[in-house]
Design a protein around this nucleic acid. Structure first.
Length: 429
RNA sequence: UCCUCGAUAGCUCAAUGGUAGAGCAACCGGCUGUUAACCGGUAGGUUGUAGGUUCGAAUCCUACUCGAGGAGCCA
């Protein structure tokens, strides 16, 4: 009977066939310990020379690392096994004898591993990250779907910069130019006026020459947008969203977080309410700590880390200066120098995982902003229509999936948080 | 784009101007419970590329290539 390794606990006493790969082998004269993996888990198969045919003994001894195999044997409880079960092997069939495998059980450099990303994904650690990533995505979708949101897919080809500041990937589009999207947000604003509560989930592209552990040129973003939500409703939504996401990972990914040696006590503290400080208060805190920042500056990575270190859960920083935020952010009517926006800074130095804001809902002010930023008015007529036909206060946010994965998994680089990372100097494999 | 650092065996690294080495992987052998198994042996090199200094360069100098970390920008 074919069986998955993760289901073997219920098969004690039965003979099963596992199909997978030889992860490692340790041998002595009359014993082989086969470490077998099938994508669902890892189990040790014990081959005793006296108990198997000469053919099986030879196959077990000759199978190279990462050879594909079908292994048949008796499932047996064993206290020495990490998962409590082992396989007493009766038969080993080598489906494909692998060539010398380039990834060893010792440490490797990041560059070497990224060149071998297609094989690196087979490792225990990378598998755990991908499981957590999938759970995070599922948690985001389930939360929004159950909260009355409608999934709306935004276009990838766009006629212009959404935010007008960042560098976009340009592509030829039947004789004219198009750009790969850097955000679905403007389209979500249109959709929110049609369906009330909407979100998009898709890839996003930034051609900035950023070379840091927090940047990719292609990454995934979830962007909810809600009609009639003001900036404070928006923060309340983010708070529920993020705590639900972390709670789901804790509930469903225990073994994966353990494989990643993640300190889960830090994640267990991620429950609402999250602390909220204004940009102005943040500047005061940084200045008191000796940082050379002035009101009007944007924060660097070090500043964000310093701010978040005072708290044991994600930190909202709200009402940044309008001058350093995107053109579509609504200014605070009581103090137009600042926008009704917020960032969410993850704990433990992981920095900005969410950028959020209430949108400019006034036709005249938005028109002026687009002109101020030197953006082509023609391309934004449709966006201005949203302010001509029943404009309402509305808010939304964008969360970078890879940054969330990095934080929750405790990774050093966002490159590990995506199956096939695209960075400034790498678009292979 | 800027700053810093790096490139030596398949991999991870040592060798600070004087005979290029270790661990792992591979291959051969040993070992009856291994957990990155262990023990012994064999083989493995145009020291990123091009030039320069020197009796002599992996080592010092110049340029280039590729990469890493950071800055800016952002999620």
């Amino acid at each position: 009977m074919n069986c998955l390794i993760k289901d073997l606990g219920a098969q004690v006493g039965n003979e099963v066939t596992l199909r997978g790969w030889m992860y490692n082998r340790r041998s002595s004269k009359t014993l082989h310990f086969l470490q077998l993996r099938d994508g669902s888990g890892v189990i040790q198969g014990v081959v005793v020379q006296a108990e198997v045919s000469p053919q099986t003994w030879k196959a077990a001894g000759d199978a190279t690392m990462e050879s594909s195999v079908a292994v048949t044997g008796l499932v047996r409880e064993d206290k020495r096994a990490p998962t409590g079960v082992e396989l007493s092997v009766r038969d080993v069939e080598v489906l494909h004898q692998a060539q010398e495998y380039p990834i060893q059980k010792k440490e490797h450099g990041i560059d070497y591993l990224l060149d071998l990303r297609h094989l690196w994904l087979r490792s225990t650690r990378q598998r755990a990250i991908m499981k957590v990533r999938a759970t995070i995505i599922r948690a985001c979708r389930d939360f929004l779907d159950q909260d009355g949101f409608t999934l709306i897919d935004a276009p990838i080809f766009t006629p212009n910069a959404c935010e007008g500041t960042t560098t976009l990937f340009e592509t030829e589009y039947f004789g004219s130019k198009a750009y790969l999207t850097q955000s679905g947000q403007l389209y979500m604003e249109a959709a929110a006026m049609a369906l009330g509560r909407v979100y998009c989930f898709g890839p996003t592209f930034r051609a900035e020459k950023s070379k840091t552990r927090r940047h990719l040129t292609e990454f995934w973003m979830v962007e909810p947008e809600v009609a009639f939500n003001d900036w404070q409703d928006n923060m309340a939504l983010q708070e529920r969203f993020v705590s639900a996401m972390v709670g789901r990972v804790l509930a469903e990914c225990g073994p994966d977080l353990k494989a990643l040696e993640r300190d889960t006590s830090k994640l267990e503290k991620v429950v609402a309410p999250f602390p909220r400080i204004s940009y102005t208060e943040a500047i005061e805190r940084l200045q008191a700590a000796g940082r050379p920042v002035q009101w009007g500056d944007d924060f660097g990575a070090e500043d964000e880390t310093l701010l978040s270190e005072s708290f044991d859960r994600p930190l909202f920083v709200y009402q940044y200066p309008a001058a350093i935020k995107a053109f579509y952010m609504k200014p605070n009517p009581a103090d137009p120098r600042v926008a009704l926006c917020n960032d969410l800074l993850a704990p433990e130095g992981y920095g900005e995982v969410i950028g959020a804001g209430q949108r400019m809902d006034d036709l005249e002010m938005l028109t002026a902003k687009i002109q101020e930023h030197g953006l082509p008015m023609k391309n934004f007529e449709w966006f201005l229509d949203l302010r001509r036909y029943g404009t309402v206060p509305h808010s939304g946010f964008g969360m970078g999936i890879e940054r969330a994965v990095s934080w929750i998994c405790g990774l050093q680089h966002v490159r590990e948080a995506i199956p096939f990372p695209r960075t400034m100097y790498r678009n292979t494999p």
